[in-house]
Structures are given as structure tokens and as C-alpha cells.
Design a protein around this nucleic acid. Structure first.
Lengths: 133, 133
DNA sequence: GGCTGGTCTTACTTTTACGTAAATTTTTAA
DNA sequence: TTAAAAATTTACGTAAAAGTAAGACCAGCC
């Protein structure tokens, strides 16, 4: 039994709709080497693996990573099992990226806490004024 | 008793050192209206409140927010108590920003989980090869 | 068979967030 | 008071990440 709705290929516009980006953007990521769709004639055909890469890219963008940084992250996932020296390096890179992410999470938590305060005060003030939310 | 080391004013270079940015960058943020240092003659004098704003700005940058978005966040904090309509709007804005941040945190947690997997596999493979970390 | 919609390449343009340089002034310290 | 260090304004330059436009090519279809 095949998994439900595993398409062989996606067209470029299908993906632009799913990810809400332009064709230019997707072609740009190809130019940058982040994805490598196959071709039928000149037309690009995107496999599920390309789609998954796009998901990774979008997530990286939401987190404020540059294309170069996203390329790094992708390369971490792609790294083959490799031999000892490579493995140590890979683990090093994982640790560095994770530290970056943990810093970001700290920043996020602080900001959320501050926003919560603003909200609380606002609601308090509204209650004083006898306003229903 | 005054709090320890509460300076009256900071010079621009003091701040460039603390935040590791250039003078150009700090003046740029002033042009953008994010901070408004006072002047003694032509020279900018930065109060502790300006410094706190710079901390906010840097945090926003780490999270991948644009100057425009950082301006929004700052404006949320600055909003005066205000009257009812304004308060409701403010709470709305808080909720939106928080949602954005929660999305980012989700993205971060997913990415970290994936990196953890890569690390685990690498360490496993190294153990097989009989390598000490 | 002529339109509509999707796709392609090439190439110029734009926005954001500063970098860099030049030419002055101002401040600080010896 | 004078030299060095720090600050200022003005203005052009740049890298990243796309936007936009032009011109051409197919495929389906009513």
C-alpha cells in the first residue's frame, strides 16, 4: 500500500501556491543550489524530496536565516555517514547550530513574556474602565 | 541608594563596543526613528533608555525581524495607557505578535529535534567505529 | 485555430540594511 | 595650545533576496 497522496511530481505553480512564493523565488533557490528539480524538456519537475527541501527553506526563512545559513543547515542533513574526522566535524556543526537556535528561543521567550505583561496591563486597564473584551 | 553603575549617558562608541555594531548602524537606527538620543551641541548622548531600546533592536534582529517589524514591537511597548478603542487594538497587536513568535518557537523546536537526531546518529556511528568523543 | 494558462530564459530594477569614504568639527589629554 | 582621538554630516556604493518585464514556447480545449 502506498502512502496517501504521494505525488510523483509537483509543478512549479503548485509549489508557489502551497508555499505562497513566486516562481522567481523558487527558481532563485535553484540558482543558489538549494534544490535541483529534474527536467522534462525545459520544464522543471519537483519531486517530494524537493518539496521537503522547500519546507526546510521556508522554515529557515521564518527564523531569519540567510540563504547561506540555510544552505549550511541543509548540508548538515545531507552529510553522508562518513568517516571519523568528518563525523567529529559534523557533530561540531550540529552543536553550533543548536546553540544559535537556543539563543533564538531565549530571545523569543523573553519577548513573549514582555508582550504578556503589556496584555495583562491593558486588560487590567480595560477592566477598570468597565469594558467587556 | 542608586543602582550600581547607572550611567547618565553613553557615547556612541561605547555602545558600538557593547553591541558590536558600527556607528553607522546606530545612526541608521536613529534615522529610522527607532531611537532618539539627545544632543549636546552636535554630539549624541544616549540615555539608559536608549541603550535598552538598542537591546530590543538587537534581539529583534537575532530573531530575523525587519526594521519595520522591530518598529512595530517597540511601538507596542511605548503605547500609552490610552482609551478603550486603543486598548482593544493594542491587545490585538500583542496577540498577533505573540502568534508570530510562537510559530518561530515551533520552527526552532522542530529544527533542534532534527539536529538532535543527526547528532545521535553520528555519535552512534562513531561508537561503532570505536572512536572516543 | 485562436485563446488561455503555464513555463522558460535573460536581464534590468528595487528594497533593505547597512559599508565606506571624504571633508569637517569637537572633545579630550598631554 | 596643540595634537590625537572621537564625532558629525553628506553622499555614493554594495550584498542579499527577490520583483518585474520582455519575448518566446507549448498544451489543452471550445
Amino acid at each position: 500500500m502506498k502512502s496517501p497522496e504521494q505525488k510523483q511530481f509537483y509543478s512549479i505553480t503548485e509549489l508557489t501556491r502551497e508555499f505562497e512564493v513566486s516562481t522567481r523565488t523558487i527558481r532563485f533557490y535553484e540558482d543558489e543550489g538549494l534544490i535541483q528539480p529534474v527536467r522534462r524538456g525545459r520544464t522543471r519537475l519537483f519531486k517530494p524530496s524537493d518539496r521537503r527541501l522547500l519546507m526546510l527553506i521556508m522554515r529557515g526563512k521564518r527564523l531569519g536565516f540567510s540563504i547561506a545559513e540555510i544552505r549550511e543547515i541543509i548540508s548538515i542533513y545531507k552529510e553522508p555517514p562518513g568517516e571519523t574526522g568528518q563525523l567529529k566535524l559534523l557533530v561540531q556543526r550540529v552543536i553550533e547550530k543548536r546553540d544559535q537556535l537556543l539563543q533564538k528561543r531565549k530571545d523569543i521567550d523573553e519577548t513573549i513574556a514582555e508582550l504578556d505583561q503589556v496584555e495583562e496591563q491593558s486588560l487590567g486597564r480595560m477592566a477598570e474602565l468597565g469594558v467587556g473584551t
